[in-house]
Amino acid sequence: MRSLYSPRRTWLHAVPAWLKLLALSLAGTALVLIDDVPAMGVVTIVVLALFISLRTAAWQQWKTLRSLLIAASLIAAFHWLTGHAALGIASGLRIMAAAMLALMLTVSTRFDDLLAVLETLLSPLRRFGVPTERIALAIGLMLRFAENFLSQWQRLDDAYRVRTGRSGSWRLLAPLAIRALQSAERVADALAARLGA
């Protein structure tokens, strides 16, 4: 499982993760507060310029941006048809600006760096007995098992295809779910034996 992080270095890669997250949350708040179309237009153009400055690293995420562009256009068109063109344009621009800012963070920040910021932010919860250090373990386990289940799914599908000549699709969900539960029980036993219940 590869993160959406792009290893192509850009100027934004050098900025620490916490600073980018802080900037993103401030910018997100600002976007919600602006509802005037010209101001929103200026903000969107600035964000677009920043986005373009990341070059290839950002445009690799064009697929995500395209689906948001479609949604934003539909919303703008809907409001225009019902006679609130300004509201529609502002909403559409806000969605695009917010998405570009978020994408910039995602492509320029390593998964581990973001995880470290999250763990630091949550660390006060440790006093109340919340095991925040287990987040990393849980994510690691999840990714390992996602790979495992995908290959189990493919194996089940291959077996079904050999028997019937067709893809198993939804018929394989029950066996997959049962296998998942059986693995879950085995891993739970193994973890309980190593880490204590």
Binding site: L141, F145, V187, G196, A197
Partner: peptide, 12 residues
């Protein structure tokens, strides 16, 4: 720990 493994597995 037991719940942790169910949680991770179902998220997967």
């Amino acid at each position: 720990t037991r719940s942790l493994s169910y949680i991770a597995l179902f998220a997967a």
